[in-house]
Structures are given as structure tokens and as C-alpha cells.
């Protein structure tokens, strides 16, 4: 798993250094869009309709449309000016019972792992949360974005669920009311309750599969096989051996040459000594 973020959980006076990982992954099958004629992947270019030309990212600024067709430009400096506690922390604010947090609040899940130096405090927090059965509500600042989160323990690891702010949750008030209006008979209720009880089991997530994805996967695999993309499974392993042999031969040759030139040198110098001897 890739570390998404490094920071610290602050809990009272204790600071626990942690690394964050995504706890879930989408397994949707992704497609690329291709140009039908030549099969190359389609590129998306940024185009300004008023200037009638393509523009580069340097030419793009961020704008907020405050009324139709009217924008104010918000640049990096503006955003930096917003007072935000920019430390990389997960600040624990309160502890609550998990049953009080409605599942509609949960957004994304992340694992928090103790980073170097934080092991003991991390273990302590987990143990205390296990004992009390509480979850922590925390304020999180990641990449200068602030959000709310619930921290709980799963398999002895801290799990962080980012949660929506209350004003981000839509009210069901505008929908048709559920219980009002309909008249229910005693027998009908009994039957429905019976039915639910008959279908009640323990939750075993392994039971459920994405059947559509599975079918799509099989279809794709069949196409790949049909196209015989099966490329070289040649004896690549031979290449290591070949390379080593070539290197050894090259080393040997160089050493032989050196030996030759060495013995040549000694012969030459011997000759010279003899010559001097005869000369003298």
C-alpha cells in the first residue's frame, strides 16, 4: 500500500506520528477511449472558445461563478491567506459511542499506521479505545483541506473514517413520507416481520460478488486471448548466462593481452640489460 500522507494524531498532550493509507479501493474496470480509425488513445486538450485556440495550464486560473457568466478569480495567494491551522495533524476533539454516528455520515476510510517513534502512544490509544468502546471524533487537515473524521479500532489498527459535516447531509423532508398515510393491517406486518426473520443471517461479506464486473472481466479476457497477445516467453533466462559468458570472455581476453604485453616488456628489458653488458 502506498502512503497517502504522513502526520500526527494529537490526543491531549500526546502527539502520535502516523502514516495514512487508503483502506478501500474501487475495482471498477476502466476503459480508454480510442480513435476508431487508428486505435490510438484520445487526448483531451484545453481549448478557449473565445480565443479559438488551445491553451496551456500556465494560462489557466481558478474562477468562482457568483452569477451566471460572472466570475471572481481566486488564486493561490488568496487561498493561503485563509487562516487554517496548517500543521499536519488529526486533532482528537471528543469521544463518542459509535452507535450515535449514523452511517450516512461516513465518507472515506483510511488506515493509520504508527510511524517511527509513535508505536507506544499508538498502542496505548488503541488499548484505551478498546477498553472504553468509544470512537474519537477528530478534525483533520490534509493538503490544506479541513474535514471531520471518526477514528475507531479495527483488527488492532486505527481506522479513520472521514465524515460529512451536518450541513452536507441532505434532509429527506422533500421525499414522500414513509409511514404516514398508508393503512397497515396487523397480519401484513406479522407476515413481513416473519419474512425478515427467515432471511436473517450473519453478515458475511465474502458471499457477495460483483457479478457484472466478473462477467465483463471474462469477456475482456476472452478478447485478449483471441487476439493472441501472447508475446515472447522465450528463454530470456539464457540471456543472463550469455551476458555473463561474454563478460568473462572479455575479461579473459584483456588479461591475456596484459600478460602478453608484460612478458614482452620483460623480454625487452632483459635484452637491453644484455646489450649494456656486452657493450661494457
Amino acid at each position: 500500500m502506498r502512503t497517502l500522507w504522513k502526520g500526527a494524531v494529537s490526543f491531549g498532550l500526546v502527539n502520535i506520528p502516523v502514516k495514512m493509507y487508503a483502506a478501500t479501493e474501487k475495482k471498477d474496470i476502466k476503459f480508454n477511449y480510442l480513435h476508431r480509425e487508428c486505435m490510438s488513445p484520445v487526448e483531451y486538450h484545453k481549448f478557449c472558445p473565445r480565443c479559438g485556440r488551445e491553451i496551456s495550464s500556465e494560462e489557466i486560473v481558478r474562477g468562482y461563478e457568483y452569477q451566471k457568466g460572472n466570475y471572481v478569480v481566486i488564486n493561490e495567494e488568496d487561498l493561503e491567506r485563509i487562516p487554517l491551522n496548517n500543521t499536519k495533524t488529526i486533532d482528537i476533539l471528543d469521544f463518542v459511542d459509535i452507535s450515535q454516528v449514523d452511517p450516512v455520515f461516513f465518507d472515506k476510510s483510511y488506515y493509520l499506521e504508527a510511524a517511527a517513534g509513535g508505536e507506544k502512544a499508538y498502542a496505548l490509544l488503541i488499548e484505551a479505545m478498546n477498553k472504553t468502546g468509544k470512537v474519537a471524533i477528530a478534525r483533520v487537515i490534509i493538503r490544506s483541506k479541513q474535514s471531520l473524521a471518526a477514528l475507531r479500532v479495527k483488527d488492532q489498527v486505527l481506522l479513520m473514517e472521514t465524515i460529512f459535516y451536518p450541513d452536507e447531509i441532505r434532509s429527506p423532508a422533500s421525499l414522500n413520507p414513509g409511514l404516514d398515510g398508508a393503512k397497515l393491517h396487523e397480519n401484513e406486518i406479522k407476515m413481513a416481520v416473519n419474512l425478515i426473520e427467515n432471511l436473517s443471517v450473519n453478515f458475511e461479506p465474502e458471499k457477495y460478488h460483483d457479478e457484472y464486473r466478473q462477467a465483463l472481466r471474462e469477456l475482456i479476457d476472452a478478447k485478449i486471448v483471441g487476439k493472441e497477445v501472447v508475446a515472447p516467453t522465450v528463454a530470456e533466462t539464457g540471456k543472463v548466462v550469455d551476458l555473463m559468458e561474454a563478460l568473462q570472455a572479455s575479461v579473459k581476453l584483456a588479461e591475456e593481452n596484459r600478460q602478453k604485453s608484460k612478458s614482452g616488456e620483460t623480454k625487452a628489458s632483459k635484452k637491453r640489460t644484455r646489450k649494456t653488458k656486452t657493450g661494457s
Binding site: V234, E236, T237, V240
Partner: peptide
Amino acid sequence: LLMQEVPINYI
């Protein structure tokens, strides 16, 4: 796919 296309060796 790449196992076929780019076989590896471990030294």
C-alpha cells in the same frame, strides 16, 4: 500481460 511481454530474471 506484462509477464509475457517483459520476462524478468532475479540475480
